[in-house]
Every structure is written in C-alpha cells, then in structure tokens.
Design a protein around this nucleic acid. Structure first.
Lengths: 342, 342
DNA sequence: TTGAAAGCGCTACCAC
DNA sequence: GTGGTAGCGCTTTCAA
C-alpha cells in the first residue's frame, strides 16, 4: 500500500504538501502541485479513507436506517438516495431493520465514526433513541418520519387517505371499505392510522358514517390484502369500493376480487397508496407518493447539513397526487373501464 | 466522545488492558476484566471503528458491487446478503453500478480500507479489473459471475434456457420464440446469451430448427418485453410459445399477449426466468434461480474468507428449478388452465 | 498480568 | 509556499 509519505519522497516534498494537493487546499504552487500529481499517478496512490477519517473526525459515509429495505417503496427511496449520493464522495451504508432488536442494536452502535450523517427512513424513533443519535454529533435527516426540531421530508398521510376516499365518494360510492396495517405494530408505524383518519374525514365530509365492519387491519403484506378483501366481500353488505393503505395490500385485494368472481371496477373499485411500479401494471388508481424524490431530497439535505450550511430543522412536505387508472369507477358501472392501462 | 484512555483512567488501568478486554484477548485477570467492563458500561464507551480499522488494517465492512441494485433479482440477492451479515460485525456498503463510469470508478477507488471483502454481483469483471482489486488484498467472492481462480456462486444459465425450452417442447410446441437481453451490452452481461444457447440446444435436441425471426433481443425492461412480444405475435407465423430470459421481460410479453387479444396459455405459452415475486402473481411458469440463497451463500463464503480459513477458489453451483404455473400449456389448448395460481 | 509506547496514514497547525 | 510535527483512537509489541 502506497502511503502519503512515499508519494512525498517520490515528489521530493513534505507529506503536508501532498495532503494539500489531495485536498485541493490553497497555497501550493502550480509547479509543486503538478509534480505531486505526477507522483500520485505513477505510484497509483490512493488515500487511506480510514486514516483520513480518523484524522479529520469524519468518515465520508452516510448511513441509512430503514425497515424492510426490500419493500418496493423502500427500494424506490433508496434509489433516490443513491442518485443523490452519486458524484458526492460519500459511501452508503445500509442498516436494515427487520426486528425491534435490529433497531435497538443500530441505535446503540451508531456513531460518528460509522457515518457522518444518518438518514432515518419510515421509522418513528423515540425521543431517547434520537437523543442518543444526536449526542453522537451525526447529522440526521428524517424521511417519511417526523420529529420536533429535525429536518424531515414528509407527505401528508391524512390528506392522502382523504384524497383516496374523496375520489370514491365523488364517483358516487357510499359503502367504502378501508384496509390498513396493524395499528399497534412493534415499530410504531402510524402512517396507516393517519390514512385511516383521512378516510374518516372524507367520509364525514360526505355525510357518511363508516361501517366499522368495513374497516379491517392486518400486516403489510399482499396475502393479507387478499384475506382482508375476502372478508370484506363475503360479508352481508359488501362494499362497492375499498381504500387500501398501500399498493401491496391493494394488489392482494385485487386478487381477492378476481377470486370472488367479481369485476373491477364494475363491482368493486380499489384505490391504493404509493404508486409503486406494480400499480401501473395493475391499472390501480392510487395515491402517488414521491418516493424517489423523497429519498433524493433527504440525501441532499443531509449532504447540505454535512457541508458548511447549518442543518435547518425544516420540514419539507412533498405533494401527494391521485393517479386515476382503471381500478375505480362509479358503483354499479356496467361499461368497460377506460383510461390508461400502461 | 469517550476514548479508550478515558475508560482506562476510569478503571485505573492502562489503555492496552482495555483494548484486550474489548477484543477478548487472553491474559486479563477476571477482576480487572470486570472492572473495565463496568467502566465501559458507565461511560457508555464505544470503540472508534476508524481508529480500530487504521490500527488493525481492516475496517469491518464488506462491499457489494452490483449493477442496477433496484432490480427485483438484485434486491432478492441483497436480502440474502443482509441476512447472512446479520449477527456478524460487518457493515454493508453498497456500490451501485448504472453506467460503465460507475463501474470504472468503483474499481479504481476500491481498496482494503473501504472494505475488507467484496461481493461482486452479476458483473463480469475484466482480468485487469479483478487484478487491481485482488492487488488490494481484499477478499473477493463472485455471485452470478465467474472468474478463474475465484470463489463463486453460480447457476447454469445454459441449462436454465434448456429447461425452459424443453418444457415447452414436452408440451408439444414447435414454434417457440426466444426473447433476451441485448447480446452486446456495455457491461458484458452474457447470461441471456447463455440462456439462448440453452434454448438452441433444447431445440436441436427436439430436432427443431429455430426460426431466427422468432429470436429477438432488447434491453432488460418490461416495456421491451411488450414490444418484442408484439413483434413476435404480429408476424406472419407467430410462435405458440415464448421463452423469456427474465421474468421482467416475460411480464411485458404477457401484456402484449393480452393487448393482442390472445389468451395465455391457450394461444401463447410463456416461460420466464428468475422467479421473482411477480411471477407468482402472474401465474408465470419460470425457471427459478435461488436468488436469496445465492446472496446468502456468497456473503457466507466471504465471511469465511475473512476468517482464518484461506479463501478456497471453489465454484458453488446452485440448482435451477422449473416452476410450472398457468402460463404454459400445450399448443392450441382449449380448456382453462389448471394449477397453482397463488 | 499489566503499563508504556510505538505506530497505523492522514490532516492541520506552526514555523520558516 | 512549504516542511516538520503533533495528534486522531486504537492495537500490539516489549518490558516489567
């Protein structure tokens, strides 16, 4: 391994000078600079990031702590993060959380030396957890999560639930079901609950009292969507439309509708949430969350915070958008659905 | 930040002793050990990974270099890697490759200080690239790639293409199309080409001369699958079955079949490759690759290599499996398809 | 069994 | 402008 000293010797300068050249600090004569660069090239010198990090107190790495990173929505966000980091000199370390233990372990072991900055995704961290992390001096940006005094990128879940429901109300539906994630999950996820609130708001606005038998909960999985929709559809008074708190559950619901021999949207309309790629192919009407954008913006904010700028504890709210496809129609519609399918 | 010296002072011992305790090296009396551990706990001491890495010459990190990490197959492999790494003390750094420049940059800047070991996924590296990486002293394991003298986890692409085609031949198909990735792509991916070889082998075995008009290529994208299948189906003598080199293209092909007003599998059978989650929902018959397993095994091999054992340049071949669903049937079949749909 | 001290490779400060 | 040098926090000899 070639060290900075060897380069210095080769170029006939001091180690400090080589360092200055590497870091593009001012105060090196063009001549010396050129000579040093040449030595670097001939010796194929690469600075040791560990030594550099130790010396400077930072490690040119940003960490992303994310639950269930293989979920389509998480991946899409990560794609945004990777895009934002491309070109910067920062490496990306992934901290996946699948269990509360993972979460605790990461919170406990995270420190300034493992990452200069941390992107917390979709994980509502407790006050003490955040306090511990902040105490390390790491820059922190929240994505799809929010906490007093911290910069965050969010969307309005309540509004999203409202939009989805309103769309169905506008189409003329009255018996509208809702299916969401378990309200008391071990991670404290609450976006599904907020969307449910939005659902209730829209229902109230329309003067409809939701039938509690049509509001179901279960884990965030496709199969669960199938199951819950099955329950909904086999009841005495099945809904004519279903608001799903995610495209994943919605995809499951669509399966159940098909399995029940019903047509979508003629017999049952479905609205999802997220607009992951699958939604396009399913023709699923859904509330689009700017996933890629949120990851990208979060990473950018973090890079900014790591730069000269002081990290502003600003909350960036990204807009939701209702994407209408073929899964929704007025109740009892008989004609073939029209609209974008691809 | 609490340093090892502060802990030493607090416990009334030398820094070296604290280090020995942390690293569980022998030669510390139980009494001292207990005292040190107590100090560590009270001071909430966490060793600085950077300093440790600099001193020991390794950084407790493994790097994964992977093209297009958001693709379903890559994600599934990464999931295996994360699973294998869980519990180990290694962090995971992601090196995404979307362009030849990314690839060159990663190869150039990778070194022992950024990662102790490297998992190269699906990327056929050139001799000189590998040489450069090996020169850094990093342990290297290849997944879905192969190179003389390096440990690798692979599946037999040719055999997979053969299996898929043979299945269709066995069902009675003679006009079988093939759609694959671009043979001359900028990354040198060749698995699609190998699968095509397998297709030709199976065709030859069945005494069929493939109609070259039925062998199409294009980028690895769903939309491309739709397009290519469209061409195939609108020709003068359309195929009764299509072998796709990936589930992604197969999904596109299915769309094209529907769009053409044809039925699957009665009019056209389709076989995919990979068995990503989508395949289940599409009812797609496909050649299952053990994606999760390959990532997991690759990571395990890497961890082993980083341990005492010398890295054996052994090639681990994982079995492919044909998963039959509802997208394939004998040509001209009239009855409804039967079989697993979920 | 333990403490002291010499690095690991780099940055940044202080003289010149 | 430039060289020398004192750390950054840890591991690992070497003595004691």
């Amino acid at each position: 391994m070639v060290t900075i000293r060897e380069v210095a010797a080769h170029a006939g300068v001091g180690a400090g000078t080589v360092s200055r050249v590497i870091n593009e600090s001012a105060g090196v004569s063009p001549t010396t600079r050129a000579r040093v660069l040449e030595s670097i090239a001939t010796l194929q010198y690469r600075p040791n990031p560990l030594a550099r990090g130790l010396s400077r107190g930072r490690c040119q790495t940003i960490g992303v702590i994310v639950p269930f990173f293989t979920q389509a929505s998480a991946i899409e966000r990560l794609r945004g993060v990777v895009a934002a980091l491309g070109g910067s000199r920062y490496d990306l370390v992934l901290f996946d959380v699948e269990t509360p233990e993972h979460r605790a372990e990461h919170v406990a072991t995270l420190n300034r030396q493992r990452a200069d900055g941390l992107l917390v995704m979709s994980l509502p961290l407790a006050d003490d957890e955040l306090a511990r992390i902040m105490a390390t001096g790491m820059a922190v940006v929240l994505v799809d999560a929010q906490h007093e005094g911290l910069p965050a990128v969010v969307t309005d879940d309540t509004e999203g639930g409202r939009m989805a429901t309103e769309h169905l109300v506008d189409l003329g539906h009255r018996r509208i079901g809702f299916m969401g994630d378990d309200p008391d999950n071990e991670f404290g996820f609450n976006s599904s609950a907020l969307r449910e609130t939005g659902y209730r708001v829209a229902m109230a606005d329309a003067g409809i009292t939701p039938d509690e038998a049509l509001v179901l909960h279960g884990p965030h999985e496709r199969g669960v969507g199938t199951e819950l929709a099955g329950q909904l559809l086999s009841g005495p008074e099945p809904p004519t439309a279903i608001v799903c708190c995610s495209d994943v559950q919605a995809a499951g619901a669509i399966e159940a509708i098909r399995a029940a021999g019903l047509r979508m949207p003629q017999d049952v309309s479905v609205v999802g949430f997220d607009d992951i790629e699958m939604a396009t192919h399913l023709g699923l009407t859904t509330v689009r969350r700017p996933l890629f954008h949120s990851g990208q913006l979060g990473a950018r904010l973090l890079l900014e915070a790591l730069g000269v700028h002081p990290p502003e504890p600003q909350v960036h709210e990204l807009d939701l958008e209702l994407v209408t496809r073929t899964s929704t129609a007025p109740p009892g519609a008989t004609s073939e659905p029209q609209g974008e399918t691809t």
